[in-house]
Design a binder for these strands. Sequence first.
DNA 1: AAACAAATTTCGTATTATGAAACTAATTAT
DNA 2: ATAATTAGTTTCATAATACGAAATTTGTTT
Lengths: 256, 256
Amino acid sequence: MVGVVQSVDRALSILELISNYNEGLGITDISESLGLHKSTVHRLLGTLIYKGYVVQDQVSLKYKLTTKLFELGNKIIEGKDILEASKAHTEALMRRLNEVVHLVIRDGTDIVYIDKVEASDSFSMMRMASNIGRRSPLYSTSVGKAMLAFMDEEEVAEIWNASKIVKLTEKTITDFDEFMKELEKIRQLGYAEDDEENELGVRCIGAPIFNRWGEVEGAISISGPTIRITKEKIDEIAEEVKKCAYSISKELGYRG
Amino acid sequence: MVGVVQSVDRALSILELISNYNEGLGITDISESLGLHKSTVHRLLGTLIYKGYVVQDQVSLKYKLTTKLFELGNKIIEGKDILEASKAHTEALMRRLNEVVHLVIRDGTDIVYIDKVEASDSFSMMRMASNIGRRSPLYSTSVGKAMLAFMDEEEVAEIWNASKIVKLTEKTITDFDEFMKELEKIRQLGYAEDDEENELGVRCIGAPIFNRWGEVEGAISISGPTIRITKEKIDEIAEEVKKCAYSISKELGYRG
DNA sequence: AAACAAATTTCGTATTATGAAACTAATTAT
DNA sequence: ATAATTAGTTTCATAATACGAAATTTGTTT
C-alpha cells in the first residue's frame, strides 16, 4: 500500500482488534492475529498507552481499551443535527427509488417538513425549498405515525387528545382504539404507511429516526402516486426506507 | 519521547484535533495546530482515510471524522456490566474515605447488594462476600432513594404503592408527599442521604449510576457510624461519592 | 487575468520504525 | 523442587520507512 503509513495502519488495526475483546488481549494473541512481530506490537501498544487509548491490566497483563475512543467518538455525534446527518442518506434513497423523500421533525401535535429531496426532470437530484416548513398533523401522516409508534403510550394519548381529529379522506383513522392498533402494527413492521389517509391518490411510507438516547427524533418518508407506489411494491420500498432511517439514526449516535 | 512511535502519535493527535471540529479541518489548519509539515499531515490523513476514520468533504475539501471511532468506542461499552465497570472505582473510593462502599442494583421494590468493598484491619483492601445478595427496600436506603430520584414519577409511585412502607426508625419517611419532596432535594444535590432512616447510628450517602441510555442502572454508597460520618463531613464525602458514581456511569457509556 | 491560498505530489535523505535475538518473569509439566 | 514452556519485555544493528523541502496542481480572490 503506497501512501499508507505502515505504523499508523498497524496501530489502528491493533485498536480495532482489541475492541472485540472486552477481557483484553495479550501481545502474542495480537501478534499472531495480525501477523506482526511481538516487539512491533509491544512498541505500538506502548504508544497507544502513552496516548491513553489502551491500558494493560496489571493482573492478567492483557491489553484492553480505555473509554477514550468512546469519548472521542461521542464528540463527533454530539454536534450533529438531524438535517445534516440525513443529507447523504435521503439523497441516496431518492436516487434509488426515484420518488420524493421527506424529512420531518415533531412540533407539538404536528410534523414539520425540514427537508425534501426530489428528482428533477434531467435525472439529476435537486433539493426543493417548496414545502419546507409546512406542517401536517401527526395522526394522519406516515411520518407522524412512524414517530408516534415509538413514543410512550401516555404521550401518544396526550397528542391524540390535543389534536383536532379530522377525517381528511374516507381512509383517515379517527377512532383512538383503532389508531392504537395501527401503531402496534407499525411497531411490528418497523415502518408506517399512509394509504391515502391524508390525500387521495397519494401513498407514503415512513420510518422513524432515533437519536443517541434511543428517543424518536424525526422520521423520513417516501411518497408518490398510488399508481407508482403500488400495494405490491410496498414491502420492497419499506425495506429501503427503514434501512435509510436506520443509517440516519446511526449517524445521530443511535445504538440499536 | 523514546519508545513512542512518532507517526502513530501524530496520527492520533490529528484524530483528536479533528474531533473538536464537526465542520472539519483543512490540512493547513491541522498542520499549524500541531506544528507538523503539510505533507506529513496529508500522508497521515491519507492513512486515516484508508482505515475509514476520516473522510474528505468533496465540496469544502475539509477533513472530518466518520462514525467509525464512535462505533469502535461503543463496542467497548456494550460488553461492560456494572460490577466490572465499578470495581476499580469503588476500591479507590474506599481507600480514599476508608469507609464501606456498597454497589447495588434494583430488583422490583428492593435494592440488591452486588458488591461491597471494605478496609481490612491491615489497611489492605478486601472484598467481602458477606451481605452480597442481601435485599433492602428502595424507599429507606440512600442508594434506593438516589435511584428513585432519577426515575419517572409514575414509576416511583408504582414502586411506593407496591412497597410495604414500614417505620424502621423514627426517622424513616413514610409519607408519600414528604418522600417526593425528599427526591426533589436529592435531584438538586445529586446525592441521597440515609440519616439513620434504616438503622439507628448508621448514616449512608448514595449516588446513582446511569447507563448509556441515560437510565438509572444502579447506585453506590458510603456507609458508616454517625460518629465517623458526621453532619459536617457530609458535603465533602458526598462530593467523592458523586464523582465515583459519575466515573462508573461514564464507563458504562453514560454521556452526561 | 494575475495573484494568492490551499491541497496535493514527488523525491532524495536520514531519521525512524523494524524485527531478530536476548532477557526476564510467570506458569505448567516432570 | 526443578526443568521446560509460554508470555512479556528490552536491546540494538539495519534498512526500510516516514519525513519534509520543494514543486505542482487546483481553486479562490482581487
